[in-house]
Design a protein around this nucleic acid. Structure first.
Lengths: 333, 333
DNA sequence: TTGTAGGCGTTATCAG
DNA sequence: CTGATAACGCCTACAA
């Protein structure tokens, strides 16, 4: 690859001049500018960003560590982040932590040695303490989809309790009184918050909380099926189920279909997250929308602001929204 | 951030020695090694990869440009690529081209100036000629999911014709003779190839090709609905539909459901790609599996080989596979 | 085994 | 407006 020196030689000017035209410094004569441009063009010159970064101490890139590069959750988020970053001449370096502590650490190490201008963290495995310590060392770290009180001004997170409340309230409004809940793993704060929202709605409606109606499931693949099966095996009646996420809700769909039943007939089901495929299910799923893209956009903007030395006073809490589709209906009988 | 100099000062050795312990050079006395390690630790030292890359002319990172960072297609691919790369100490820098020529060029420019060790291209907008020219300049570019004859040894692609054949053959084997096809945009080579596979199967079975039964659709979102609607409005009979991808097949699902019909009852439908959500649909979709992850793995390995100077003699063609689920059945009557 | 010193490709300061 | 030249942080002969 051509270097600045080759360009300057070819153009018959100094390296400094080449550098100047690259960086849009206007103190260059028109004639020289043209000569330089021509030379660059001829050589297919691309500045070496390592050298640039070394000299300027700026990398013009921000790093993100997500759970996985695939999946309906992180994808849209990275997408929106990249869009706004790119508009400002920044680039995104994406790494994944696979919800594994060592890998998360490794990813962060990588981004640090890459001297990214900022780091976006969407991590599960790493504990609050470690997070806090890192943030103290590095003022350009932001935490997504997670709330850490000590890091309040660098967190962008969802009001999960409200989501759980909305889902439950929806069923209550439809007339349901026997409402079950299949939660995500309760080690996760968000699962606990969603459950709390469920309790709040129940409470508000004067419905007593019944532990028999609550089962803990997994967010992944068929964690939903297992948990749903468990619920149906218990000897309790219910006409609606509030789920920890869409995957779990799909598990309920599956269990119902074993009896040739469909959601909303005898049992209403409400998901959570509104993954893009939820609308492809039949019946279309009633769910809680999680503004993933918006979270990404906001995060990216916070980064940009921080980089231009605007003081960040507080984090951002996003509101979930109820999306009513076809999997919920008034109880029969 | 601490530099190598600070570490060497603190450890009371030269920078060279610090560099040696970093790079696992064993010609360092145990005592000095320990001193250095302690110093690094104390300072939270992270080598500056810009400086390293500048000095070694190696970045230990490979770049990829995909259509979008989100979506069920690119995600799994990046995921598998990152996995194998990471195992070898390489990192993935992901950028997106949004199927837009300027953005694709920009992404490539970025990766070039990042001096990535190799570039993986999954691009749509860029023409063959431009691709060829780039590959000539840079021997470390690979083309995924696309076949360019002149670049045969750096392409990893799918046997699309076979896929179209398998889908159609499946319906024929079930007893169907009136089989429609909703293709992707025929400007795309893969859509044309899939269509050709359809023709081949028909031909082999002695069924005459009927242009009335073929309609061109879009791969995205509701491109399927529109094309399906068009097909159903034509005055032709058919009992099976072979689709250009799963999205299009979902369009057929939707159209059928308007009449309260379900796939496999009167009309069988076969998708293409086996997106992960296809199994969540009811009835579960019969489709052609596209080994996306495998494509990623292979690509990553090619990169690795090329980096260790193994000569690449040929590209790789992957075989699609028929996945029979519930949306196809023998024709009734 | 260790240290010295030159070089990697840019930027930026400072004279001209 | 232009050109030397000293950083930037690290690696790597070469010498000791």
């Amino acid at each position: 690859m051509a270097t600045i020196k080759e360009v300057s030689d070819l153009a018959g000017v100094s390296q400094a001049t080449v550098s100047r035209v690259m960086n849009g410094n206007n103190k260059v004569s028109e004639i020289n500018r043209e000569r330089v441009m021509a030379a660059m063009d001829k050589l297919g010159y691309q500045p070496n960003s390592f050298a640039q970064a070394l000299a300027t101490n700026r990398s013009y890139s921000v790093g993100i560590v997500v759970g996985t590069l695939s999946g309906p959750f992180y994808g849209p988020m990275m997408h929106s982040i990249e869009s706004v970053l790119r508009n400002e001449g920044q680039h995104l370096i994406a790494t994944s932590g696979h919800d594994d502590l060592e890998q998360e650490r490794d990813a962060i190490r990588f981004l640090n040695s890459r001297r990214v201008d900022a780091i976006l963290l969407v991590v599960q495995a790493m504990g609050d303490d470690e997070l806090i310590e890192m943030c103290q060392r590095n003022p350009n770290i932001f935490v997504l989809n997670r709330y850490v009180p000590e890091l309040a001004n660098r967190c962008i997170y969802l009001n999960n309790e409200l989501g759980g409340y909305l889902a439950t309230k929806h069923l209550i409004d439809l007339g349901h009184t026997k409402i079950a809940s299949i939660t995500g793993p309760l080690v996760h704060l968000d699962a606990r918050e969603r459950l709390q929202g469920y309790r709040n709605a129940l409470n508000e409606a004067g419905i007593e909380y019944d532990a028999q109606l609550v089962v803990e499931g997994l967010y992944q693949e068929d964690g939903g099926n297992k948990a749903a099966a468990k619920l149906f095996q218990r000897d309790v009646e219910f006409t609606g189920v509030v789920c920890g996420n869409d995957n779990i809700a799909i598990g309920v769909y599956d269990i119902l279909s074993l009896d040739n039943e469909s959601p909303a007939e005898r049992i209403s089901v409400v998901g959570y997250d509104d993954m893009f495929y939820s609308r492809y299910l039949r019946p279309k799923m009633t769910t809680i929308r999680f503004p993933i893209e918006e979270m990404g956009t906001i995060a990216a903007n916070m980064v940009l602001q921080n980089l231009s030395n605007v003081d960040l006073v507080k984090g951002v809490q996003l509101e979930p929204q109820l999306i009513v589709r076809e999997s919920s209906a008034p109880p029969v009988g």
